[in-house]
Write a protein that binds this DNA or RNA. Structure first.
Lengths: 202, 202
DNA sequence: TTATGAATTGACTGATCAATCAATAGGCGG
DNA sequence: CCGCCTATTGATTGATCAGTCAATTCATAA
């Protein structure tokens, strides 16, 4: 019985939840499994989280905020709208987002958002941030077309990510970021203001 | 105890399964619920389907083949590649695909495909057919770029559909087909061979 | 050292549900 | 009308699990 501060225990349990969901590739995981993976008893899981749903939502929040951090970090060093769009695309398909457990959990949480309004609300935060990021950086390039174009780019990101997650291959064979950049370039060709930094060929 | 031929009973049960999954917005539906919705006892469901999984897969197959029929029907009357691409986009966001129960079930089945190899195989059939349809009709327009472009368009369709399914509004506010056509147009602008029939403005 | 309270355990409960199966009902040929 | 076969029923079983709680362990301060 090793004692640790609440902060770390919660983190352990959240992490274990993501790992178990990733391993099972669904929400069909028991609290005993999760607790065991975290190295604690099942009772402790309920000590720190009201119920199983709350634990799932905490795990979802963790994934979304880790993604959010990725985006922020990559945007920091970008100067131009073009660079920032590239940063967004790379963050979506960066190493931490492409972790297999994370990908599976993400898809599972998408499905969860269908029935859980709390999960849906979390997803909406992610979606709105992505859309706003895209619009903000597309507007200098294509003006009023930025909004509908951003909708399409965001949809494309989700769709490609979904397909990645469903691929069984251990390593993903194609570069999602490059695909997204290609699409952005296509969207901008009207006014020809966007030129992809380097990655043209897929 | 009303007797009906096997064919119809199976169809009833499959339909009830989709309705229940749609209502619950998840796979958390009991065989008793499904059977009741189909107007039979739970035992009969197991008489016609080996187990619950088989029933789920049958329902998934029904949705995919209904979508497939939509595409075929709409492609029939199309002559040019442009028209056929338009037909594909419209079929994906046509009335029968946008039925709320069907949309929910579709998303749920996507998640199911993560863990069930049988479900994944069904999804692969759909994905390959869509990709092949797209490539076949893009090639006359953009040649060698058809393949990567088709990957993006297919991803966009999945992503937009996913977002549709997550929208809570009873009626979907935006026209997915128009978005897809707009993206196709953007992909073709290099060579300027594609002009959308009419729907430019979203 | 002892007392206090917080962290941790894991056995237990009550509910749920997939799948089974013996019993019944209905159609159909003889 | 009688048997036979199949469709259909629904009570039952056996397993699973979320969540509870009384008991136990540990850290810390007095």
């Amino acid at each position: 019985m090793q004692r640790r501060p609440e902060r770390e225990r919660r983190a352990d349990l959240i992490n274990a939840t993501i790992l178990e969901i990733g391993a099972a590739r669904s929400l069909d995981v028991t609290t005993v499994q999760i607790a065991k993976r975290a190295g604690v008893s099942s009772g402790l899981a309920f000590h720190y989280f009201k119920d199983k749903d709350s634990l799932f939502l905490a795990a979802m929040r963790a994934i979304l905020s880790s993604y959010s951090d990725d985006v922020s970090r990559m945007m920091k060093s970008a100067q131009s709208p073009q660079d920032r769009l590239t940063a967004i695309a790379k963050a979506c398909f960066g190493a931490s987002s492409l972790d297999r457990n994370t990908m599976s959990a993400w898809v599972v949480f998408y499905a969860l958002a269908l029935k859980s309004s709390r999960a849906k609300r979390l997803l909406n935060v992610y979606q709105r941030r992505l859309h706003s990021n895209l619009v903000h950086n597309l507007r200098p390039l294509i003006g009023a077309q930025a909004d509908p174009a951003a909708r399409r780019i965001a949809g494309l990101i989700d769709g490609l990510y979904l397909r990645c997650a469903l691929e069984s291959h251990a390593v993903v064979a194609f570069d999602g970021a490059a695909e997204v950049l290609q699409a952005i370039e296509a969207e901008c060709q009207d006014t020809c203001l966007f030129a992809a930094p380097k990655t043209h060929a897929i």
